[in-house]
């Protein structure tokens, strides 16, 4: 039997519908992930609350140097947004590298984060950029750093009935460079075997002032390779030091065997692609 579809135009209405129907309700924005899970019988809600008409959830804006992407902005809007490109070209590329143009026209930025698929592109890049989501529930609004949003495969720390309204990417410190790379041994629109999102800033003496390295698709959530970051911070990022950091990223990966490679192969590829990403940031 079909679910009942609701399409409120106000956020309060959406929250009230989710609160009223509890576990029987599911929120959707672009509904790409939902359609797949519903068709497989993995989700069987009695009520589906569509957020696409809630205007306050859309749009992309600059907020005093921070980039704020509304939850229902599509990937395509984000990849084409001059504001996103100006804030961080690698972030625009991460949005543009999701699946195909068909999916990017429908799937939303907030939906992607709420879906919490560790093999997706934007989560790793947004985590490297120290982004946080704004979440709203009948109890109020809170900010959840991405490091605390992702709990496990397809599992977030959002409370039942709580919605992501936007993702906020703080201003990058001047001189920060960012990279997003993705290893695709099968097809151009596949999930990555491993992806690496990294940011790096050097001080005037050339040493690494700040660095963040995040691995995608090699664990139940995007993984921040803090040991690799520690090996670089304060150091001159020469080839040997980058190789050392990349080896630490390999150890930080926590992959599973699947059609995209054995766990051992993915760990090795995490090293290779971390090294490539970091080299590109100091070239």
């Amino acid at each position: 039997m079909s679910y009942a579809y609701h399409e409120p135009s106000e956020l309060d209405e959406a929250l009230a519908l989710l609160a009223r129907h509890g576990d029987d309700a599911h929120a959707v924005a672009g509904a790409t992930a939902f359609m797949l899970l519903y068709r497989q019988g993995l989700l069987r809600p009695s009520h589906v609350v569509g957020l696409r008409r809630v205007r306050s959830l859309g749009g992309i804006r600059d907020d005093g140097g921070a980039l704020v992407i509304g939850a229902t902005a599509t990937h395509r809007e984000a990849e084409r947004s001059p504001l996103v490109a100006r804030h961080c070209a690698a972030l625009a590329r991460a949005f543009a590298s999701v699946a195909t143009v068909r999916v990017r026209n429908q799937a939303t930025v907030g939906g992607n984060l709420a879906h919490a698929d560790p093999a997706q592109d934007p989560p790793a890049m947004l985590l490297a950029l120290d982004a946080a989501v704004t979440a709203v529930s009948p109890g109020g609004t809170r900010e959840i750093p991405l490091a605390e949003l992702f709990v496990d495969v397809l599992t977030t720390s959002l409370a039942p009935g709580e919605l992501i309204t936007a993702v906020r990417v703080p201003a990058l410190a001047p001189g920060t460079r960012a990279a997003y790379v993705k290893f695709l041994p099968r097809t151009a629109d596949d999930y990555a075997t491993v992806s690496v999102a990294a940011t790096l800033r050097r001080s005037e003496d050339g040493r690494v002032a700040d660095v963040r390295v995040v691995l995608g698709a090699v664990g139940p959530t995007p993984i921040r390779a803090t040991s690799a970051e520690d090996a670089l911070r304060g150091a001159a990022p020469d080839a040997a030091r980058i190789a050392e950091a990349a080896a630490l990223a390999r150890d930080a990966a926590d992959p599973i065997d699947d059609v995209r490679g054995s766990a051992a192969y993915k760990r090795e590829m995490a090293r290779v692609w971390t090294e490539r990403a970091l080299r590109s940031l100091v070239a």
Binding site: Y5, V28, M35, R102, V103
Partner: peptide, 13 residues
């Protein structure tokens, strides 16, 4: 005008 996959697209949209 936007290209989508009709197999993933809810008719209500």
């Amino acid at each position: 005008g936007a290209l989508v996959s009709a197999c993933l697209y809810p008719a209500v949209f």
